[in-house]
Design a protein around this nucleic acid. Structure first.
Length: 223
DNA sequence: AACTCGGGGCA
DNA sequence: TGCCCAGAGTT
């Protein structure tokens, strides 16, 4: 099965953008520091209140200097309601102290430096690089991998290869948004287990849908 | 590449 | 309960 054509790719991105106009959610921070913290907080968190908690957090802590001066226990209490608060509070405080001590209170626009921060991995680093600094990086998680391969935006089990293939077809100006569209689509519609193909905006472009049409209800291997 | 830690959501 | 993550860190 061939990859999507350039023209089809443009149409798919257009439809996803119209379907998920607010897909950026909590990650819509142009400020690199707030984006970094918001991304760390929302990682592995499916609680929609994470957006509210994040905004509230930035009311209290204005910058890395405020987090660096706080205790992990204090921050933990501020983010308690969205879960995973223990390690996250520690990581946020530790990361901010490093920012203050080693990077002059600024978030480094460098992947190697970002992933050395406690609690910051490859995916968080890519989100910050692409969204806050406009640096070519597209974080490929399980959702992006699955959706991309189903619709023919990529054909690979490797996140790195998939990233390259997507970046080769999607205009650079859409990289950061494409990431959120694909993730959002993967959670809301193109789920691993029971994909809601009947509600899919890009159904006619999807190779997976064509290959499974008329076989609804049957267990389908998805990965 | 495979495994562990981690807390919540959901069937 | 068991299974699954808008991951990271370690081996």
């Amino acid at each position: 099965m061939a990859l999507l054509s350039k023209k089809e790719t443009v149409e798919v991105m257009d439809k996803l953008s119209k379907r998920y106009p607010d897909a950026k959610c909590a990650l819509n921070h142009s400020n690199p520091f707030e984006l970094l913290i918001a991304t760390m907080l929302s990682a592995q968190c499916t609680d929609v209140r994470v957006n509210i908690v994040t905004e509230r957090l930035f009311q209290k802590y204005r910058g890395p200097e405020d987090f660096a001066a706080a205790t992990a226990e204090e921050v933990q209490e501020d983010i308690r309601e969205v879960g995973l608060f223990r390690s996250k509070a520690q990581n946020i405080v530790a990361t901010c102290r490093i920012l203050m001590e080693q990077y002059g209170g600024e978030v480094p626009a460098d992947r190697d430096k970002l992933v050395k921060l406690p609690g910051v991995g490859r995916k968080t680093a890519n989100v910050v690089l692409s969204n806050a600094f406009g640096i070519p990086a597209l974080a490929v998680d399980t959702h992006v991998l699955r959706v991309s391969n189903r619709i023919g935006l990529a054909k690979s089990d490797s996140p790195d290869d998939t990233e390259r293939q997507i970046c080769r077809r999607v205009p650079k100006s859409q990289w950061s948004q494409a990431h959120h569209w694909l993730i959002h689509h993967g959670r809301q519609i193109c789920a691993a287990r029971k994909p809601k193909c009947e509600a899919c905006p890009i159904q006619e472009h999807c190779q997976y849908f064509r290959s499974t049409a008329g076989r609804k209800g049957r267990a389908v291997k998805t990965s």
